[in-house]
C-alpha cells in the first residue's frame, strides 16, 4: 500500500570535506588515522549536540567506508586502537567499522540495527551512522579512475529517527547482473513508484552515468548531481546531496526523499525518509590539520 510519508526522519546531517591531498607529504598511517578519528569524534558530538538528542539514545554506531581498507587489511592500524581513541569523545562514538559493502555499507549497517531491534522486540528510536573516506596513502587510483573519474573525500554523520513503525523504508539488496549501476537505477525507479512525492538523491557520477540515470528514471524528480563540484564521494553522496539541498532551500514543511547509494560490486541501499524544518544541517569548513 502506498504511504504518503516515511516513518524515517532525518534529524541531522554533518559533512566535513577533506582536502586533496590530505597532507603535503605522507604521514605515518597511525598518525593519519588518529587525526581523522579526532575530526570524526568532534563532528559526531557537534551534530548530536545540535539535534538535542541525549547521547544515551544511541545503542549502536557504525563507521562505514568504501575505500579505507588498506590500513586495516595490512594490519598497519588496528580498529580497536581507533575505537579506543574515539571513546575519548564518548561511549556513543563508532565502535564498529564496516566497509565490506563499500558505498552501501551505511544501509547494510542500519538494516542490521533494525533487524536486531526487531528480534529483541523493541522499537529502535534513533539511529546514527558515520561515513569516512579519506585517501590516507594518497593513491592515484582513489584520486581519479575510469569508473567514476574524480573522487571526493570527507567525513559524514547522519542521525535518523524512527518516528513510526517502519514498513519498507529501507531497500537493501544487490544487483544480480554485471551492470550493477543500471540495475540499481531500475530498482530506484521501481521503489519510487511506491513512494509518492519522493525526490531521489543519487550517488554522484560523471555525465555518461548521469545520462543513464536520467534515461532509466524516466523523469522522476531528483536532486542535482554534484559530481562536478565534489567528485564521487562514495557512500556520502546522497547525504551530501540532501545537506546541500537543505542549505540552499529552506525546508518549511516535511519533504520526502530517497537517499540512494550503489557500490561498484552491485550492493545498493535506498532509504525513504523525511527532511523537516528541524533537520540539523552542518556543512563544516574543509578539514585542516591543526
Amino acid at each position: 500500500m502506498d504511504q504518503t510519508v516515511s516513518g524515517l526522519v532525518v534529524k541531522g546531517i554533518a559533512f566535513t570535506p577533506l582536502p586533496q591531498p590530505l597532507f603535503d607529504q605522507l604521514l605515518p598511517i597511525d598518525q593519519v588515522m588518529s587525526l581523522l578519528a579526532q575530526s570524526l569524534g568532534s563532528q559526531v558530538n557537534q551534530l548530536i549536540k545540535q539535534t538535542g538528542i541525549p547521547v544515551t539514545e544511541f545503542e549502536r554506531h557504525f563507521l562505514c567506508s568504501t575505500m579505507i581498507e588498506l590500513p586495516f587489511t595490512t594490519q598497519s592500524v588496528k580498529w580497536q586502537d581507533i575505537a579506543t581513541q574515539l571513546k575519548e569523545y564518548g561511549d556513543h562514538q563508532p565502535d564498529t567499522f564496516v566497509n565490506a559493502y563499500e558505498c552501501a555499507s551505511w544501509g547494510y549497517s542500519l538494516r542490521h540495527y533494525l533487524k536486531q531491534a526487531e528480534l529483541e522486540q523493541r522499537q529502535a528510536k534513533y539511529m546514527i551512522v558515520s561515513i569516512m573516506d579519506a585517501n590516507v596513502y594518497n593513491f592515484e587510483f582513489w584520486r581519479y579512475n575510469e569508473h567514476w573519474e574524480h573522487s571526493g573525500f570527507g567525513i559524514t554523520t547522519v542521525i535518523l529517527e524512527v518516528e513510526a513503525p517502519l514498513t519498507d523504508e529501507m531497500t537493501i539488496g544487490c544487483a544480480v547482473t554485471h551492470n550493477g549501476v543500471a540495475e540499481f537505477a531500475t530498482v530506484v525507479r521501481r521503489t519510487m513508484m511506491k513512494k509518492p512525492g519522493a525526490v531521489v538523491a543519487l550517488p554522484f557520477f560523471p555525465v555518461n552515468v548521469q545520462m543513464m540515470f536520467e534515461k532509466l528514471l524516466r523523469g522522476q524528480p531528483s536532486l542535482p548531481d554534484l559530481h562536478a563540484n565534489h567528485g564521487h564521494c562514495f557512500g556520502a553522496d546522497p547525504w551530501l546531496s540532501l545537506l546541500t539541498h537543505g542549505l540552499n532551500n529552506k525546508i518549511e514543511q516535511p519533504q520526502r526523499f530517497m537517499a540512494c547509494s550503489v557500490a561498484l560490486n552491485g550492493y545498493y541501499a535506498i532509504a525513504d525518509l523525511m527532511m523537516t524544518p528541524d533537520t540539523v544541517l552542518i556543512m563544516n569548513k574543509e578539514w585542516q590539520r591543526d
Binding site: 581498507e69 586495516f72 588496528k78 580498529w79 580497536q80 575505537a83 564498529t96 567499522f97 564496516v98 566497509n99 565490506a100 559493502y101 547494510y108 549497517s109 538494516r111 542490521h112 533487524k115 537493501i172 539488496g173 544487490c174 560490486n265 552491485g266 550492493y267
Partner: peptide
C-alpha cells in the same frame, strides 16, 4: 568481486573487527 548472495542476507553482518 561480488560477495556471494547468502552472505548479504539480513541475518548476516560483515565487519572489519
Amino acid at each position: 568481486m561480488r560477495i556471494p548472495n547468502n552472505l548479504l542476507a539480513d541475518n548476516v553482518l560483515l565487519l572489519e573487527d
